[in-house]
Each structure stands twice: as structure tokens, then as C-alpha cells.
Nucleic acid binder design. Structure first.
Length: 854
RNA sequence: GCCCGCGUGGUGGAAUGGUAGACACAGGGGACUUAAAAUCCCUAGGCAAUGCGCCGUGCCGGUUCGAGUCCGGCCGCGGGUACCA
């Protein structure tokens, strides 16, 4: 007997699908449309298992929806701009474009081997001039609508390489190549006005009911709406041209516990003081020798400098608070200035202890001793920070007698407003989106700087503003800046000699509208409205949880901006109807040490039974996300070559729930292959008995088939592909053991082929064809379970005694409660437990369980 | 630091607040085979010892007739933290 030959089967059916153009998306008035999209990949050059998992999931949805009668669009493209191409250019002296397109060609071939139901006719890369030209057109329209503007912002500056660094290029405060201490540097940059949409982006989250709750909650926290008080501390004497310091606080109720006023090193007052005082200049310079990332700033040691200035407390003009510059205060937040209340903020507490500043309690726990007062925390190690809704007792309030923080804040705002020294304001944490990048491999920002006219957008007929090809990466920095001629252009407004902008766009811009471009990838405008109106929204979006905030929030903003500019219908302002976030693919890490004790990593393919080929034992480190640096990667191509794409897909979908991480094990891949081989063997044994349709006559097999249809369908609908896979294992076992006539088993196996087709499409197609199914299984209608076959006559009821299962009874499904109770009470185990007395309680949940409380 | 998740046998995991461990991997036993591979059958949380029992879903506590599931507090791991994508 021949064996399961995945390579032959897969090539055959991939060709058949291509020839029949099965996956070509076309508007169809007779069917509802369904747009499935997986986050497009960065073309690193090689497919990894995370891709296989992500795209296998999307493929299940796309194929299943097609079988359900939808007109499906399932496109694919490339998120092709970004840092790695420039790094490759520097390291290997290859042009970023050449490197990127070679990677795309390679990966596309690998994609093809997986047999995904993709409509490749819509493919594009974000580095295609056609795509980024339309992005430039969008930028110009956004500029016109006031959605983009320029302001100053800080970047990580490498003073040796004279270049801007990404946060990930800063390691322990030093540039990753030069090793130089990184500085913060201010540049004029372009910003999208996303913060103007904070309220809308926040409230609209409530409508995204098919998004994971965790993603909505992360976005809500990121947007960070808060109610607080804005007011000013008057300086006792003007300094640095300032007479007061404006602050924002969400805890105005703690104002009587203030110990100092803190300002950011980038605050205008700090800037002014720097110029006069070398010590302050040195301190601020030290603060600026830090990366710009929030995690770095927040975890760095808290440092401060007493400016010697004093500020008057707004409630007591005779109370003078010292003004400190502190490294943890961000200029981007609120007003860049705070007042510190160490008793009720852990960071302020530590800072105050370090610098010997007073710590006065404003409130104490509700159950604190009656004599507890402002000195309550004197001996404590931590600030007292209860939930805002917890009951507390104010000992130094200034507005009534609130009983919780929440009430205290409201009362403090009301008091400040009526006394006229402060205003309650709503504040958002969300900042405007800085899109300027001082790099070559990105979409050029289509503006020209003219001495006479200022910043002028390029004319749309001159788009795309193409990246020049003749660039060198022999030194750090942006090659666009030093290109001999590229910058020189006439001003689009006056025609005089002018200079192009050399900054390019953040790659998040590229990925913020690609879903819209897929609806009409060749259009001469960013979208074709008829196509966009038809295909939008994305019905199911699938991608990694790592994109929960930035990519998804930016896309939501961009969709709104595109609606404003008329490129999308109003209904598309939330572009993704449903979102699913899948987990990562992980693997054990194999490590040895070199003669200096440094770790050396080994590929799984080099390790057998915990040993290298030369017999050296490796240390096994628990699984982590597959990464090249740890070498815990498995090449999908090798798996596909060895077992076939269906095995790789099947294994990626089995075992782990899609939203959780999955661990790749070679044993798991082998068992997946074994199973598919078994199904194939059953098929080849039964193929001789294949004949035309008809019902399954054998009652048990008919019922098992109906249950399989129900359960597999439920699994797919609920994004629990692992349970669908488990049910298919079970159905295979049933079919294997069934003594039903061959014709019945053929019929059941045909159904199984349909149920398997979203996951293992090639094998399903082969089974379908061997068993003489009609047409392609990829175009067959999804099977329906006969409800009559799903009805069970009897149910097993577990009997619990005091919540612990002790026995069970089998009863008719519709048996009345009273009869069940009688049966239960008569049961031997219950009699024994009751020992003659009556039960305290008898709970009967029909069809579920019985609990006897004794 | 902050925000958001996750934690169940030797392993991956299943389980609308209702029989914890479905399905599978590895393991053990058996069949077939000269033998091996492949395949097929049986077994399988731990302790105890043979019926029956006790313990058990990271740890501590709570709500409930009943908690892996809900609530509070810890511990550990992971994702994000605005220039990685």
C-alpha cells in the first residue's frame, strides 16, 4: 500500500486552486462579503513558526467563511519599511530596497508552500512607490484638514555616530554601535493630532464588543482620561522670566500634604535657570543623559535638585514650598510640573525620604486610632495609597469632610473653583503621534521648505516623492540629508529654489491604512470609494497581542482621519469589527558555555536527547518566544519539507488555545503527521467503496457525525481551533472503530474531509477527491448537523454530597425534578450519607447535577 | 516603575459557577514480526492499597449548596511602555 505523500498532494491541489482562481476576491451581489485579515508580516527574509500559526488561523476563518457562503476577501502584503533593512545595508553593503524585495520574493515562495487561501492579486509592499505615494497624498490631505502639525520633541541622540537612535538601539543608556552615552536632543518634528480624538477613541471602545476585553482595557488605560485640578503656585520672587508654576494634579485633596513643587528638567523655568546656574545646568545635563523611554525614566533612580526658589501654597500664602527639579517629571505630561505629596504617593515618599523633605498625612485609614494625625506615617516604610473609593479619615483636608479619596478630589476641585484659584479639567495621557524619522528607509514626508513660503506641501501631481536609489550607508546618519541633489527642488508655491524635507515617516503610518488599500490596491487615489464601501470593514482581524496598543490605536485614528478626508465611509471609522490576538510560538532554549563562561546557544536541530552531536550536554532553559538571538527557532520550511504544510498547520492549530502561547516540540509535529497519515490510510482503504451521496444509515455513526459537525463548527466559531482539532481526533477514533457498512463510513469520512478542510486543506481535498466528492472541497458548502441526531434520550447526573461527587444516576433527559429527587434520595450512597436524617438541602440542576447537603 | 494578561498530571492542554484532567505527546503493558520500524489493543493525576478512602487546578484568604472558573491579597512568568515591528 502506498503511503501519505504530502509533497505530491500539496503541490497538486495548490495548482488546482490557482487554476480555478478559487481565492480571488470579487464583489458578489448574491452573497454577503467577509473580509479576513491577518497582520501583514515584516519581510525579514524567512517565515517563522509565529507566521505559520498566525496565517493558519486566518486561513481557517477564511476557508470556513467561504464554505458558509460568504464572498471572502483574504489579502496579503508586506510591512516593508523599517530599521532592519538599513542595518542590513550597513552590515552587508546592500541597498535596503534590494534586500527587502529579495526577502519578499523568498518569503512569498515559503508562503505558497503553506497553501493559504490568499488573494495574491491584491499584494503590495509598503515600500512600493505606488503605495507610499498614496500615503503621501493622504499626508497632504491631513495637512489640509489640520490633522498634522510641527512642534519640537526629544529624540535619543548618539553624539559619536551623530545619529538618532530608536529606543531599542539604546542599551543601558548607550548607543548600541558606538557605545556612547546617549543624550536627549530636541528636534522639530511632524505630529498627527491623535490626542484631539482622545475622547472619541476612548468612548468608541465600548462599541468594539468583538474585541478582546484586555485590548480595550489596555487602550483605555493608554488614553488615560483623568479628572483633576489645574492651578498655579506663585513664586515668591520672579525667576527665569516666570512668576508662577502651573501644575496639574489628579489628587488636589492632598494639597495640604504638599512638601515641594517639582518641575521637569525640560520645563521652561528649568531651562531658564540652567543658563544662570552652572550647578543646575550640570544636573539638567545629567537628566538628559538618559534615553527617552518611559520604562527607563520610571525605573531610573529618582534624583532631584533644590533650585533654592520658593513657591507660595495657594491655601496659605505664608507657607513657602521649595522648588525642585526632578528627573522623573516628564515635560510631555500635564504641565511638566507637579506638587509632591509624599504621604500618599510612593514615588514622592521615597524622594522625600532621600532628600529629608517633610511627610505629612492628609488622611489616615478609617480605622486608625483617634489620635492619628499628620504625623501618622512618621515611622512607616511606605506611603499610604488606598483605592480612591476606600473609606479614609481626613486629618488635613481643606474642603468639607469627605469619607473617600473620590469625594475628597471632587470637593477640592469645587472648593478651588469657587475660591477662584484653580479649575477642574479633564486630561488625557495620550500624546500626539510623532511621525518624523531621521532615516532613509521610510516614506518621504512630502513637503518642501522654502525660504519665502515656509513649509509647503508637494503638489499631488508630483507624487510619489520617490526615495533616491543612489545612496551610501558607509557612515551613520540619514543618507537623504547628505544626498548631493535629491533635496534640491523648486518650491511648489513660488517656484524658487527650495529644499525637500529629509525626514521619513514612522512605519506605523504604513500599517495604519493598508487594510483600506487592500480594497483597491491599484487605485489612483488612496482608496476607490465604491470598493472601500463594499469591502470595509475588516470583519475579522488577527494578529499578535504585542500590537494591542500602538498599531491598533493608530489604525483607529487613521480610519477616522480617512473618513474626514472622504476616503472611507463613516461606518469604517472603527475599521476592525472583530479582533483576535494570538499567542506566540515558543521553544526551549539550548545553551552551553564557552571557555570564558559566556553562553553559547544551539539550534534545536543540532540537539538530540539533550546532547550536541559531539556528545556535549546542553543546559535546557524553559521555553521563550522564538528568537534568532537565542537560536530557539524552528524553520517552517524544514517542517514543510519533511512532513508537509498540512502537518505544520495541524500542529500549530492543535493543543494550545489560539490566544495562548504554544510550545513547538518535534514530538508534537511527529504526532500530527502520524494522525494525518492515519486519516489518509483510512481513506485509501475506503476509496474502493466510494459511491454517490446518500444519508448515513448506521445510527451510531450518524449521531457521531452530527456531533462532530456541531463541535468542530463551535470550535471554529469560538476561535478554539484546538478543541476543533481534538474533536476531529475523536471523530477519527470513532470512525476507525465503527463497524458500520463501508458506504456509511465513506459518507462519514467525506464529512470529515469537509470539517478538516479549513485546517488541512490539501489532505481534505485529496480525501474528497478519492471519495468522489463533487467539485473542490474548498468550494463545497459547510455541512449541517441534523438536529434530530443531536438529541440525547438519557443524561448522566452526577450526585454530589456536600459538593463532592459520590455517585451518578442515568435518567431520561426530560424527567421531572420531583422524580429525580425521589431517585436521588433512594440512592444507596445518599442513604448512607444521610444515615436516617433528612437532607438540609437538595439542589437539582436539571440535565446537569444534583447536590445533597447533609 | 506603571498598564494588561497568564499559572491545571511527566508534557501540550479540556472543562456555559455544576463529574477536574476531554483530546494528544512522552511512559508502562500486550498483539503482530525471526527482529526492528510501522501499525493495532490495553493502561495511565498523586498518596494509599486492591471494594471503598484521602489529597489535588501557583500560594493565602473570601463568596457559594457547589470555585480551575467569581472577589481580595501575595508569588512567578510573559506582552506593552509612545523611534523594534
Amino acid at each position: 500500500m502506498s503511503r501519505y505523500d504530502a509533497a505530491t498532494i500539496e503541490a497538486k491541489w495548490q495548482q488546482a486552486w490557482d487554476e480555478a482562481e478559487v481565492f480571488r476576491a470579487r464583489p458578489d451581489p448574491d452573497r454577503p462579503k467577509y473580509y479576513v485579515l491577518e497582520m501583514f508580516p515584516y519581510p525579514s527574509g524567512n517565515l517563522h513558526m509565529g507566521h505559520v500559526r498566525n496565517y493558519a488561523m486566518g486561513d481557517v476563518v477564511a476557508r470556513y467563511k467561504a464554505a458558509q457562503g460568504f464572498s471572502v476577501m483574504h489579502p496579503m502584503g508586506w510591512d516593508a519599511f523599517g530599521l532592519p533593512a538599513e542595518n542590513a545595508a550597513i552590515e552587508r553593503n546592500i541597498h535596503p530596497g534590494e534586500w527587502t524585495y529579495a526577502n519578499i520574493a523568498n518569503m512569498k515562495q515559503q508562503f505558497a508552500s503553506l497553501g493559504l487561501s490568499l488573494d495574491w492579486s491584491r499584494e503590495f509592499a509598503t515600500c512600493d512607490p505606488d503605495y507610499y505615494g498614496q500615503q503621501q497624498a493622504l499626508f497632504i490631505d491631513f495637512l489640509d484638514k489640520g490633522l498634522v502639525y510641527r512642534k519640537n520633541a526629544v529624540v535619543n541622540w548618539d553624539p559619536v555616530d551623530m545619529t538618532v537612535l530608536a529606543n531599542e538601539q539604546v542599551e543601558n543608556g548607550r548607543g548600541w554601535r558606538s557605545g556612547a552615552l546617549v543624550e536627549r536632543k530636541e528636534l522639530t518634528q511632524w505630529f498627527f493630532r491623535i490626542s484631539e480624538h482622545s475622547e472619541e477613541l476612548l468612548t468608541a471602545l465600548d462599541g468594539l464588543t468583538d474585541w478582546p476585553e484586555k485590548v480595550r482595557s489596555m487602550q483605555a488605560n493608554w488614553i488615560g482620561k483623568s479628572q483633576g485640578l489645574r492651578f498655579a503656585f506663585d513664586l515668591t520672587a520672579p525667576a527665569g522670566g516666570q512668576e508662577k508654576i502651573e501644575v496639574y494634579t489628579t489628587r488636589p485633596d492632598t494639597l495640604m500634604g504638599a512638601s515641594f513643587v517639582g518641575i521637569s528638567p525640560d520645563h521652561p523655568l528649568a531651562r531658564a535657570l540652567e543658563a544662570e546656574n552652572p550647578e543646575i545646568a550640570e544636573f539638567c545635563a545629567e537628566c538628559r543623559r538618559m534615553g527617552t523611554s518611559e520604562a527607563d525614566l520610571e525605573t531610573a533612580e529618582k534624583k532631584g535638585f533644590d533650585t533654592g526658589l520658593k513657591a507660595r501654597h495657594p491655601l496659605d500664602p505664608s507657607w513657602e514650598l521649595p522648588v525642585w527639579i526632578a528627573n522623573f517629571i516628564l515635560m510631555d505630561y500635564g504641565t511638566g510640573a507637579i506638587f509632591a505629596c509624599p504621604a500618599h504617593d510612593q514615588r514622592d515618599f521615597e524622594f522625600s525620604r532621600k532628600y529629608g523633605l517633610p511627610i505629612k498625612s492628609v488622611f489616615v485609614p478609617a480605622d486608625a486610632p483617634a489620635e492619628a494625625g499628620p504625623e501618622y506615617l512618621d515611622q512607616e516604610e511606605e506611603a499610604f495609597v488606598p483605592a480612591k473609593t476606600d473609606a479614609v479619615r481626613y486629618v488635613m483636608g481643606f474642603a468639607g469632610t469627605p469619607t473617600t479619596g473620590e469625594e475628597g478630589v471632587a470637593a477640592a476641585i469645587a472648593a478651588a473653583e469657587s475660591a477662584g484659584w484653580g479649575a477642574g479639567v479633564t486630561q488625557f495621557r495620550l500624546r500626539d503621534w510623532g511621525l518624523s524619522r531621521q532615516r532613509y528607509w521610510g516614506c518621504p514626508i512630502p513637503v518642501v521648505h522654502c525660504e519665502a513660503c515656509g513649509v509647503v506641501p508637494e503638489k499631488k501631481e508630483n507624487l510619489p516623492v520617490r526615495l533616491p536609489e543612489d545612496v551610501e550607508f558607509d557612515r551613520p546618519g540619514n543618507p537623504l540629508d547628505r544626498h548631493p541633489t535629491w533635496r534640491d527642488v523648486p518650491c511648489p508655491a513660488c517656484g524658487a529654489a527650495a529644499k525637500r524635507e529629509t525626514d521619513t515617516m514612522d512605519t506605523f503610518v504604513d500599517s495604519s491604512w493598508y487594510y483600506a488599500r487592500f480594497t483597491s490596491p491599484g487605485a489612483a487615489t488612496p482608496t476607490d470609494r465604491a470598493e472601500a464601501d463594499y469591502w470595509m470593514n475588516v470583519d475579522q482581524y488577527i494578529g499578535g497581542i504585542e500590537h494591542a496598543i500602538l498599531h491598533l490605536l493608530y489604525s483607529r485614528f487613521f480610519a477616522r482621519a480617512m473618513v474626514i478626508c472622504g476616503y472611507l465611509p463613516e461606518s469604517a471609522k472603527e475599521p476592525f469589527n472583530a479582533l483576535f490576538t494570538q499567542g506566540m510560538v515558543t521553544h526551549e532554549i539550548y545553551q552551553t558555555r564557552d571557555d570564558r563562561g559566556r553562553p553559547v546557544y544551539h539550534l534545536p536541530s543540532e540537539v538530540t536527547d539533550g546532547k550536541l552531536e559531539n556528545g556535549t550536554e546542553v543546559e535546557v532553559i524553559p521555553s521563550a518566544k522564538m528568537s534568532k538571538s537565542k537560536k530557539n527557532v524552528v524553520d517552517p520550511v524544514a517542517i514543510v519539507t519533511r512532513f508537509g504544510a498540512d502537518t505544520a498547520r495541524w500542529f500549530m492549530l492543535s493543543d494550545s488555545p489560539p490566544e495562548r502561547d504554544v510550545e513547538w516540540t518535534s514530538a508534537g509535529a511527529e504526532s500530527a503527521f502520524k494522525h494525518l497519515s492515519r486519516v489518509w490510510r483510512m481513506t485509501s482503504e475506503l476509496a474502493a467503496h466510494a459511491e454517490a451521496g446518500g444519508e448515513i444509515g448506521d445510527d451510531d455513526l450518524a449521531r457521531a457525525t452530527a456531533r462532530a459537525i456541531r463541535d468542530v463548527t463551535e470550535g471554529i466559531e469560538g476561535f478554539a481551533f484546538n478543541t476543533s482539532v481534538a474533536k476531529l481526533y475523536g471523530f477519527t477514533n470513532t470512525l476507525h472503530k465503527s463497524k458500520a457498512p463501508n458506504a456509511d463510513r465513506v459518507r462519514a469520512l467525506r464529512v470529515m474531509a469537509q470539517l478538516m478542510s479549513p485546517m488541512t486543506p490539501h489532505l481534505a481535498e485529496e480525501i474528497w477527491s478519492l471519495l468522489q466528492g463533487e467539485g473542490l472541497v474548498a468550494q463545497a458548502t459547510w455541512p449541517k448537523a441534523d438536529p434530530a441526531l443531536l438529541v440525547e434520550a438519557n443524561v448522566t447526573l452526577p450526585i454530589q454530597i456536600n459538593g463532592k461527587r459520590k455517585a451518578e444516576i442515568s435518567v431520561a433527559k426530560d424527567m421531572p425534578k420531583a422524580e429525580i429527587e425521589a431517585l436521588v434520595l433512594a440512592h444507596e450512597a445518599v442513604q448512607k450519607a444521610l444515615a436516617g436524617s433528612a437532607p438540609k438541602k437538595l439542589i437539582v440542576v436539571p440535565g446537569r447535577i444534583v447536590n445533597v447537603v447533609v
